[in-house]
Nucleic acid binder design. Structure first.
Length: 210
DNA sequence: GCATAGATGAGCT
DNA sequence: GCTCATCTATGCG
């Protein structure tokens, strides 16, 4: 891929105002946009095809539910801030949404690889496109996103979100969120994804759409 | 192809 | 110690 592709993406970075809306709205709007990471090894990017919203109010699955800790304090910062943390030895990347002092965020769960695919293959040690970024832990490994990206600005980089191709309108399906235990808001319909994508992490559990 | 168990380590109580 | 916003290999068909 010519390096001009990376520059093209940078010119289409979404502004901080994109994130200054309710988490559900941002979660749906992020579908089809491009998640990008620039490293010394090269630029990797993928089209976002799966997200989950975590709400400031009434959501026991949200990390902010039990109050501020050293790990989750970034959720109270400005919309457009990256919240990266580890679970089960994997890094997960979120976009802080809403407003300052309103702890809500959108988890980016899956991408369709677009740019830097060979680099992603090396990092993942997998060949098939569907195995590179079809899960929240997989996509951070493929793009090289780690704890060093926590508190970064998604409207500046090196991790950023750029406007997608916007081509065909794809149907958005909704489901309950993945991996939450009982009593943690596991019944809330806050997961959004493109049902026609081969790179979505989990295809069962669909509530509507299709 | 799908369901299940085990690995694995940081954060929190 | 226990809890995870997970991934992979495996066992079965």
């Amino acid at each position: 891929m010519p390096k001009s592709d990376g520059e093209c993406l940078r010119r289409r970075i979404l502004p901080a105002s994109f994130y200054a809306r309710p988490a559900e709205a941002v979660a749906k709007s992020l579908l089809g946009q491009m998640l990008v990471k620039e490293t010394a090894e090269g630029v990797c990017a993928g089209r976002i095809v799966e997200t989950e919203a975590y709400l400031a109010c009434g959501d026991a699955g949200c990390h902010a539910w039990r109050g501020m800790t050293a790990r989750n304090s970034v959720m109270w910062e400005a919309p457009g801030t990256a919240y990266v943390y580890t679970v089960h030895t994997h890094c997960l990347v979120n976009a802080v949404t809403g407003a300052i002092n309103l702890p809500e965020a959108v988890l980016i769960r899956a991408l369709e690889p677009v740019l830097g695919i060979e680099l992603m293959r090396r990092r993942r040690k997998r060949e098939r496109l569907e195995d590179l970024t079809s899960g929240p832990g997989k996509l951070t490994q493929a793009l090289g996103i780690d704890l060093g990206d926590n508190r970064g600005r998604l409207d500046e980089g090196p991790v950023f979100v750029a406007q997608g191709d916007g081509g065909e309108a794809r149907a958005i399906a909704t489901s309950t969120r993945i991996g939450l235990s009982q009593g943690r808001g596991e019944d809330l319909p806050l997961r959004y994804y493109y049902a026609d994508s081969d790179c979505v992490s989990v295809k069962r559990k669909t509530i509507d759409g299709g």
